[in-house]
Simulated scan of single mutants.
Amino acid sequence: MNLINKKVTHKRFGLGSIVKHNDSRIVINFASENKKFVFPDVFEKHLKLHDKVAANSLEKVIQKMEVERKEEEWKKEEEKKLQQKKLELRWEHEKLMKNHKLHPESQMVFWCDTEEQNNSFSEWKVFSGVLKSGKNQGKPNKPIRLHQNSAVLLTTRDSSLPEQDRRILGVYMVNENFIGKLCEDGFIPAHSTYRLQLTEKESEQMLFWNYYVNEKLPHRITWNTGKYRYFDNLWMAQILLDIVSLKSDPKERELAQQFFEHFCKMNQITEQELPKPNGALLRV
Rank of each mutant, 00 (worst) to 15 (best):
N5C: 04
K7D: 15
K11F: 12
V19A: 01
K20M: 11
H21Y: 03
D23A: 12
D23Y: 08
S24K: 15
I28L: 06
A31D: 15
K35V: 10
V38M: 09
K48W: 09
K52C: 15
L58F: 05
I62F: 03
K64P: 01
K64V: 07
K70L: 15
E78Q: 13
K81P: 06
Q83E: 14
Q84F: 00
R90Y: 08
L96I: 06
M108T: 02
V109A: 11
W111M: 12
W111P: 05
C112M: 10
T114F: 07
E115Y: 09
E123Q: 12
E123G: 03
K125Y: 09
K125I: 11
V126D: 00
V130G: 03
S133A: 09
S133W: 12
K135R: 11
N136V: 03
G138S: 07
P143D: 07
R145F: 07
D158G: 04
L161P: 10
P162R: 04
Q164F: 15
R167I: 13
V171A: 12
K181W: 01
E184K: 10
E184S: 08
P189E: 10
T193S: 04
Y194Q: 00
R195L: 01
L198T: 01
E204T: 06
E204G: 15
N214K: 07
N214A: 09
I221Y: 03
G226L: 00
R229I: 11
S245V: 03
S248E: 10
E252L: 14
A256R: 01
A256D: 06
Q258M: 12
F259D: 00
N267E: 06
L274W: 04
P275W: 06
G279N: 02
L281W: 02
